[in-house]
Design a protein around this nucleic acid. Structure first.
Lengths: 252, 252
DNA sequence: CAGTGGTCTAGACCACACC
DNA sequence: GTGTGGTCTAGACCACTGT
């Protein structure tokens, strides 16, 4: 009880630190239940809001997750691996191993929702595609689900002038998908630029991806270029950061 | 359908939503001061903790920042652009434009702290480098600062057996840096694998990078391979997600 | 049903920023 | 000094989860 002078931190920080250390020491495994608000109030002789604040620290760090009516639990990190560059042509690269388990396993990443519309291009899309501000684009919105859990949303924009009347404007784009259709139209993507950033999700994104507090998203803006440098597709992907590891492999 | 949902929520969510909408509508520009706790208490007739909770929502979304004794302010996003693949050989790629302003400008990214040590390889490092668990590695820790603000930390691990006695083990690795020294040792890196994830920072990382609440970090684990596939360097980079946009450009 | 986390109140003291 | 956000208390009611 008497520990005034050691470190100058606050009560909730001290509680949070002890819980975090216990987790990292393996005293609580992923999925385990942590002491709840009532237990912390009794164990540390603090008010409810103080115990809550301590638990909130861990939640905002993304290492725990609260389930209403059930308790607070240790989260796990079992990411999908997304290979940013597909040419995994079989070299012996990789005497060293990847850091995070691939875990792609046999679980299927399936499309949950598809929505195809046409509208005038948002400004940043028109800019990315090099279109006039009044041009229209085909907008393909999808959500991807893994084992019932949404992990990614994707919105692709393609110039209407390019894809009008093709299967790209259908929900089912047919064998080979959008890129195969673009190839048939003489605009096969041959080069890509991906711009990544990470940030906290909006409330809509958190809802749509089923994200708990303390989970950032990775936003990928990809532009696909055809031979000659024409931008033929612009995509905005939003990934649940707890579900993904991104991998890029390239030569010097 | 009707969008009655905006009225259904709790008090703090309603307050947060109104503030967020006001920000997105441009009523508050980046750097502007928002109504504080006292103002919100009066304006919405709520208790202090409720006003705080509303402001906490925006902070956790990373769109505002609280400065003790001063107020709550709208954050801005002015990222550096990190080109993951340096072969930016001047094609005409890019009829379309990048999404976020590059803003690299003339500001200098400088090394703030360097620390070089030697120790036995942590398990995941030994695995990544294909070393025995008892092997020792040269550990180079650095912090990078932009305009006085820390934006990245980097820890590189190189096999001791490879770099012992070379300038790699000095704080100043000389012209061309570590990779030039590796080349001289006959182990020039010719291929790289970068594994990225995003997560909330630990408290140490938040302190070291000066991150405010609601700012994730991007963690990059890079393995450098020499000709023949030998892993010669493993690096762990931790980036302030508010300071970076990552770009990867590659052929299909 | 009992127990959990989520929301909310109405006070209080503190450290810090700005004037 | 005054006002700010940060911490903390001691209550309360609610919605939800589990059994």
């Amino acid at each position: 009880m008497a520990e005034q002078g050691s470190v100058r931190r606050t009560k909730y920080q001290r509680i949070a630190t002890e819980l975090r250390d216990a987790i990292q020491a393996g005293e609580y495994a992923p999925g385990d239940r942590l002491p709840g608000e009532n237990e912390l109030m009794a164990a540390y002789n603090v008010a409810r809001m103080t115990a809550r604040q301590a638990l909130g620290v861990l939640q905002n760090e993304g290492i725990t997750e609260a389930r209403k009516g059930a308790g607070v639990f240790v989260r796990s990190f079992r990411p999908l691996r997304r290979h940013g560059i597909q040419r995994l042509s079989g070299g012996n690269w990789g005497s060293g191993q990847s850091i995070w388990s691939a875990d792609l396993g046999e679980r299927a990443l399936v499309v949950d929702r598809v929505e195809v519309t046409e509208r005038t291009a948002p400004e940043h899309v028109a800019t990315a595609l090099g279109l006039s501000p009044t041009a229209t684009v085909c907008v393909r919105s999808r959500r991807f689900v893994l084992d019932g859990k949404p992990v990614q949303t994707a919105v692709s924009y393609l110039p209407s002038e390019l894809v009008a009347g093709s299967a790209v404007t259908h929900e089912d784009t047919g064998p080979g998908g959008t890129y195969a259709r673009l190839a048939e139209l003489g605009c096969k993507p041959v080069r890509f630029r991906e711009e990544l950033r990470s940030r906290m999700p909006s409330t809509e994104e958190a809802t749509e991806l089923g994200l708990s507090s303390g989970t950032p998203v990775i936003q990928i803006c990809r532009t696909a270029f055809a031979e000659g440098g024409r931008a033929v597709e612009f995509s905005e992907l939003t990934l649940d950061s707890a579900s993904y590891v991104l991998e890029y492999e390239f030569d010097a």
